[in-house]
Nucleic acid binder design. Structure first.
Lengths: 141, 141
DNA sequence: TTTCACTTGCAACTCAGTTGCAAAAAGCGT
DNA sequence: ACGCTTTTTGCAACTGAGTTGCAAGTGAAA
């Protein structure tokens, strides 16, 4: 449990002006190691015995999202998937691709997407999210 | 209840090889009249006294989605929003814009979005969904 | 009109996420 | 280190969208 990211997570909290607490460091650790969007349940499983209460995990996530450290990436089967925001630009997350056959979701970090342009006046686009569906390489062969 | 769309809805079911039933026609009617994505609850409210059971509405929607007549447009606050698919191309729905201030969502039917390009080999993109967030004209002034 | 597969409605259930509140602990000044 | 204040945590109970099983109802083909 002395992973190299431990110090960085503590740094993240400090920069965001948040108290250093076990649940916050633990949730950050789980999200960092996963490196793909995961659910609250997967966060708890990753932390197993030292996992905070589920309410706490939700509250920690809410707080980290508010600070822009974490994103709610997407919903699948009525369940939210969270990921670290450090691979996203300010206005746009990388797209997520879900395979309609095996139902796995992967991050497409290198896809380039222009921001949508709205013809009507007055809209200020702050954030764009792209979801892709289709067949992944494994199911497509 | 003799709206001009009644016959069209019946036609839709016939073309899809689905039985003509009250719940199916009613759900189609509600979605047609709304012309924006709505929830199962809003469908029921639209139909008020003649609304089918909520389970039936979900099953009708599921069936219409399978036939490509209806789309699950997006989720907001853990609730699914459904819309007629006739404003969407095969590979892409029009984007939906949600205002972060008033929480209203509108369809952006005239926005042009190219399909994402994935550099890695083997992915077959079947469908792309774009969600936008920001300030709507009313909240932006 | 009969028949049968497909649909519907009801009741009971599931389960992700939320709320209220009392107990714990982070961080500050002393 | 030691209180003190404020923020955070954990528990239990709740909420509400969506699902499941099953018996009763209905569309449409023969």
């Amino acid at each position: 449990m002395t992973s190299p990211g431990k110090k960085r997570n503590s740094e993240i909290l400090k920069n965001a002006n948040l108290r250093q607490t076990h649940p916050r460091l633990a949730v950050l650790d789980a999200l960092m190691e996963a490196d793909i969007p995961i659910t609250r349940q997967q966060i708890a499983e990753h932390l197993s015995d030292s996992a905070p209460d589920k309410v706490t995990i939700y509250r920690v996530l809410e707080c980290l999202i508010k600070k822009g450290i974490v994103h709610k990436a997407f919903m699948k089967e009525r369940t939210a998937f969270f990921e670290m925001a450090h691979n996203c630009s300010k206005t746009q997350c990388h797209p997520h691709f879900t395979c309609t056959s095996c139902r796995k979701t992967v991050c497409i970090k290198n896809a380039k997407m222009p921001l949508a342009e709205i013809n009507e006046q007055g809209f200020a686009i702050k954030h764009q999210k792209v979801e892709l569906e289709g067949l992944c390489p494994e199911c497509n062969s």
